[in-house]
């Protein structure tokens, strides 16, 4: 499914357009790493998912139960709940390319 959507290359945004992204970012307090993750994610969303994402940032210090319920072990962790399949991205999301691949938002796979 995801591979097929990658094939028509140039028209990715249009092809994935109907898909709405539900993202949850779990961070541990206001650490520089948390801030970096939030900043990186916002940038990616605004660049690639303008108008079709639902992002929530959760501080697991404030809601430790969620860490348990959502099976969080690493911080920061980004969970892509929708579209399926579910993905967990750990780390500060600084490796943009990896983030995009994981979110099936790979921008220009043929330029490499």
């Amino acid at each position: 499914m995801s591979k097929k959507s990658k094939e028509p290359t140039s028209n990715i945004p249009e092809a994935v357009a109907p898909e709405h992204f539900v993202l949850r970012l779990y961070v541990s307090g206001a650490t520089p790493r948390s801030a970096a993750a939030i900043a990186n994610l916002r940038e990616i969303c605004e660049t690639h998912l303008m108008g079709r994402f639902d992002l929530q940032v959760i501080d697991i210090y404030q809601q430790p139960e969620l860490a348990r319920d959502q099976q969080i072990i690493a911080a920061p962790t980004l969970i892509k709940q929708l579209p399926l399949p579910l993905r967990r991205l750990v780390g500060d999301l600084s490796k943009e390319e990896r983030v995009l691949v994981s979110l099936d938002l790979s921008p220009k796979p043929l330029t490499h």
Binding site: S28, N40, T77, P85, R88, G91, S94, K95, R98
Partner: peptide, 23 residues
């Protein structure tokens, strides 16, 4: 932990584990 679901995208720690254990 499901290896296939996890992608590492940068620096992280295991604070989640600590928080859960602490809880």
């Amino acid at each position: 932990i499901e290896r296939s679901e996890i992608e590492e995208t940068g620096e992280y720690d295991l604070e989640g584990l600590f928080i859960r254990l602490g809880l």
